[in-house]
Simulated scan of single mutants.
Amino acid sequence: MSTKPTKEQVEALFGKVEEKFSQTTLGKDRWYLIAIPTLIVFVPEHGATLYTYLINKPEYSTSELRQALIRRIREALLECISIQGVCKPLETLLGISQIEREEDKDYSFSRERWNVGPETYQRGKDWLNTIYKHNQISTDDAFAAHKDITFVNYQITYGFYLSDMTILGPIETELVTLSGIMIQNIARLTGWHLRGIRRVGVSKEDVELVQQCIELIAKFGNIKLENIPRVDDIEHEV
């Protein structure tokens, strides 16, 4: 949009995305995992609007339920740091923290005991092997002369951020990852994660609907997604 969207316009967008996502078989409580990594790219301040939109629903009518919700939102934003950088996820969470009621705040610390080391590397490797399978060999080969990138990929991007399934599971993590990459109009990695989300069990039909949800948000933000593959384009690789 040429000007900053209003709260009402963003809420209307949420309704459209929610309705589109309801056509999938992925359940009604995951659509916002697409909205988070896409919306924060152009209007991170409206993360607070998303939070308010969600907690006004009957399924989040108690503090305990709202605490569970913010854990999932926080984890999605943490994963976004690994694929989009730190500033916009932080801006989003700061906005939410300003409107949270004290009784709804969650003080748990999911990665309190995390350390760089063999276990972290193995978690990263296991998750990479899940979504990349045999393709991981060629990816590692591409970075053979850039070992710092390989270290970050295994130990940090995947070992720290994306392989922790204590709050968001494999499908949810791939929803965040795919959405966060596609909204940046990165064709190659979008293809890799269209393939990856298929490999964790999401049907081809549901992946197409997920992409349509991302495109709804991109269009709203005047973000052009050019030369981005579709699930049919990568299906032969799955």
Rank of each mutant, 00 (worst) to 15 (best):
K4I: 08
K4S: 11
T6W: 08
K7Y: 07
Q9K: 13
F14S: 03
G15R: 02
F21R: 04
S22V: 04
Q23V: 08
Q23A: 13
Q23S: 14
T24A: 12
T25Y: 03
L26Y: 12
K28P: 01
D29Q: 06
W31H: 05
W31Q: 03
I34T: 14
A35E: 06
V41Y: 14
V43T: 13
P44C: 05
P44W: 09
E45N: 05
E45Y: 02
G47F: 01
A48R: 01
A48T: 04
I55R: 01
N56A: 03
R66G: 05
R66S: 06
R71F: 00
I73Y: 06
L77A: 11
E79W: 01
E79Y: 09
E79N: 14
C80G: 07
Q84R: 13
Q84P: 05
Q84K: 13
C87Y: 10
L90F: 10
L90R: 03
E91W: 02
L94C: 00
G95L: 00
I96H: 00
S97G: 06
Q98H: 00
I99E: 05
I99P: 01
E100A: 11
E100M: 14
D104C: 07
D104I: 07
F109M: 02
F109Y: 04
E112I: 04
R113G: 00
N115P: 01
G117M: 06
P118I: 06
P118C: 05
E119G: 07
T120L: 01
Y121N: 09
K125Q: 09
D126A: 11
D126I: 07
T130I: 10
K133R: 09
H134S: 05
Q136L: 10
S138M: 07
D141S: 06
D141I: 08
A142K: 07
A144Q: 12
D148L: 08
Y154R: 07
I156R: 02
S163H: 03
S163Q: 04
T166R: 02
G169T: 03
T173Y: 03
T173K: 11
L178V: 13
G180S: 12
M182R: 15
Q184S: 15
N185G: 15
N185V: 15
A187P: 11
L189S: 13
W192C: 07
H193D: 11
R198N: 07
R198Q: 10
R198H: 10
R199G: 07
R199Q: 12
V200Q: 10
E205V: 14
E205S: 14
E208L: 14
Q211C: 15
I214S: 15
L216H: 07
K219V: 11
K219F: 09
F220R: 10
I223P: 08
I223L: 15
I223A: 13
L225Q: 13
E226G: 09
P229H: 12
P229Y: 13
R230N: 15
R230L: 15
D232K: 13
H236Q: 08
E237V: 03
